[in-house]
Design a protein around this nucleic acid. Structure first.
Lengths: 156, 156
DNA sequence: TAATTCCTGAGTAATTTAGTCAGGAATCTA
DNA sequence: TAGATTCCTGACTAAATTACTCAGGAATTA
């Protein structure tokens, strides 16, 4: 039982954007460099995040991505659902025909578990982590290390 | 975010054994047929379950597998851990060196989530599901359909 | 002795994941 | 208007994992 890096990368990237909301749009090139994720791969992921209404792209110099809604309204479940196709642990995708047309012995178990997991992830909003001093420190250190946002005015 | 069928198959198979504890050892051939899982694949999984002390194999005619301890002491987490290598959602496997030697922005999040998930799965013991009337019905129907245990005395 | 069942390890096909590549479209700055 | 920047898209590829097969041996029972 592993989380694909797809979901993990997406959440990390969204976190990066949320952490810089006050500075302005964040480019994928920056995220790629700082978080160690391939640029082209990020582009794929953001195509999905955009289609699902989680981010807005801003083209041209000084552009990048911003959150499409407040960080307090974006949950980890939203992000994973967007890129990861599905958060479902049953074999049958919830249809209940997992064994020969009938439900398999563990259908109910996986169904319950999926619901719990989803509820849990839905409860975690981006802003919860953004506001942690521990994480603010980390990102400040990172920004300095890579010289991000050096020649940019602070935007609303 | 998906559960590999490895974990799902293992739990289903263990459930099958638990449900027939009173009848005697359950053969992998039976599980294979009733639950729709390849026999050779089951053998691989049970090799791990055995090494992790969850089942005991009984060779020879009338043999099969039984639980190595009471169903009330076997959790879903135990089973998944046994076959699935690891229940860990962090990139670094918990080491904290996920981004360039430092923790990545979402390390804490995945760590928390992993703990919660593990706690949740540890709380689900096999006997909880075995005692559900819904599931007893299902397995009774299955046994009849495949003619299991027809010529076997009920063993202690 | 023969049937049954566990048990092991090596190999393979299919799928998914992660990542590359090439090129176009919108936007900004000069 | 030119050129830089950045998003944006789709097709392709490499690597890893998953799911599964195969061949054969070992213990046990009848």
């Amino acid at each position: 039982m592993k989380l694909s890096t797809k979901g993990r990368y997406a959440v990390t990237a969204m976190m990066d954007i949320a952490l810089h909301e006050k500075v302005g749009p964040v480019t994928l090139a920056d995220i790629s460099q700082c978080q160690g994720i391939s640029l082209s791969y990020l582009e794929q992921l953001f195509s999905k995040l955009r289609r699902n209404g989680l981010v807005k792209g801003v083209r041209g110099p000084g552009g990048g991505y911003r959150l499409a809604k407040p960080a307090s309204e974006i949950s980890v479940a939203d992000i994973i659902d967007s890129v990861d196709e599905r958060l479902d642990l049953t074999k049958c995708g919830g249809k209940g025909n997992c064994n020969n047309g009938e439900k398999c012995l563990t259908h109910q178990l996986w169904h319950d578990l999926t619901c719990d997991l989803h509820r849990f992830l839905s409860g975690i909003k981006l802003d919860q982590y953004v506001n942690r001093p521990q994480i603010s420190e980390l990102v400040k250190k990172q920004d300095a290390q890579y010289g991000r946002f050096l020649n940019r005015r602070t935007a609303a």
